[in-house]
Computed example of a mutant assay.
Amino acid sequence: MLQAAGAERIEHPGGTLLAHLGWVSALLSSWSARPALVSAGLCHAFYGTDGFPVALLDLGRRAELAEAIGTEAEAIVYFYASCDRKSSYRGLIDDTGLCTGLFTDRFTGDRTRPSPEACRDFAELTAANELDIAAVSPQMRALHGAHLLALFTRWRPLLSERAWAHCRSVLDRADH
């Protein structure tokens, strides 16, 4: 599906979108993420994102992606792609580290309180995505590294130990 959608022809920091999707999936796998999250990592940009508007598949075709990767993985992909970052990132968790904030769906405008598992999946996938970009692009790391480190530090309760260690190794560099 990725090749049919032309992911290998779409430019992305560090190479192509296809390469980035593979790296995000591999990174999640290296963190021992469950199979549905690893599959979601491979397909996380299918519907575009708030930060990368190129969609590989129209939302009206969600059933096709669900058939290919499973309904759980597709639900993670949709949740990730639907995030209105400006209104969702800051308040995703409260000061105690609990996922109690409101999440805004950029496609529908709906505001919901995601489950703790959905918050953890979202945080891990966001970290894998952003860390892959920061690792391959010194310019992106210099521009956004400090902000990402602050975000992931706030989200620390949602991240696995391996994800947090990777955050520190990529974002604690002196060049940002």
Rank of each mutant, 00 (worst) to 15 (best):
residue 1 M to V: 11
residue 1 M to Y: 13
residue 2 L to R: 14
residue 2 L to H: 05
residue 6 G to A: 10
residue 6 G to Q: 03
residue 6 G to T: 07
residue 7 A to K: 01
residue 10 I to V: 13
residue 10 I to H: 03
residue 10 I to Q: 00
residue 11 E to R: 15
residue 11 E to G: 12
residue 12 H to M: 05
residue 13 P to N: 13
residue 13 P to K: 06
residue 13 P to G: 12
residue 15 G to Y: 05
residue 16 T to L: 11
residue 19 A to C: 06
residue 20 H to G: 09
residue 21 L to K: 04
residue 22 G to A: 13
residue 23 W to L: 13
residue 24 V to E: 01
residue 27 L to F: 02
residue 30 S to L: 06
residue 32 S to E: 08
residue 33 A to M: 10
residue 34 R to D: 13
residue 38 V to N: 05
residue 38 V to I: 14
residue 40 A to N: 09
residue 41 G to F: 00
residue 42 L to K: 10
residue 43 C to W: 04
residue 43 C to Y: 08
residue 45 A to V: 10
residue 47 Y to T: 03
residue 47 Y to V: 00
residue 48 G to V: 11
residue 49 T to V: 09
residue 52 F to I: 11
residue 52 F to C: 08
residue 53 P to Q: 08
residue 59 L to R: 12
residue 59 L to V: 04
residue 61 R to E: 10
residue 63 A to T: 15
residue 64 E to D: 15
residue 67 E to D: 13
residue 68 A to P: 02
residue 76 I to S: 03
residue 77 V to A: 04
residue 78 Y to T: 15
residue 78 Y to G: 11
residue 79 F to V: 11
residue 81 A to G: 12
residue 82 S to F: 06
residue 84 D to G: 11
residue 85 R to P: 02
residue 86 K to C: 06
residue 88 S to M: 01
residue 90 R to K: 11
residue 90 R to A: 15
residue 92 L to Y: 00
residue 94 D to G: 15
residue 96 T to S: 09
residue 98 L to F: 08
residue 98 L to M: 09
residue 101 G to E: 03
residue 101 G to C: 00
residue 101 G to A: 04
residue 105 D to T: 02
residue 106 R to N: 07
residue 107 F to N: 04
residue 107 F to G: 13
residue 109 G to M: 08
residue 109 G to K: 10
residue 110 D to M: 14
residue 115 S to T: 15
residue 117 E to P: 02
residue 117 E to T: 14
residue 118 A to G: 04
residue 121 D to Y: 07
residue 123 A to M: 11
residue 124 E to M: 05
residue 124 E to N: 01
residue 125 L to D: 02
residue 128 A to M: 00
residue 133 I to W: 01
residue 134 A to S: 08
residue 135 A to Q: 06
residue 137 S to M: 05
residue 139 Q to S: 11
residue 142 A to Q: 12
residue 142 A to K: 12
residue 144 H to Q: 13
residue 145 G to D: 06
residue 147 H to D: 13
residue 148 L to I: 04
residue 148 L to C: 01
residue 148 L to F: 07
residue 149 L to P: 01
residue 149 L to D: 00
residue 153 T to Q: 08
residue 154 R to Q: 14
residue 155 W to F: 12
residue 160 S to P: 08
residue 161 E to K: 10
residue 162 R to S: 15
residue 162 R to A: 15
residue 162 R to K: 14
residue 164 W to S: 05
residue 165 A to S: 09
residue 169 S to N: 08
residue 170 V to R: 00
residue 171 L to Q: 03
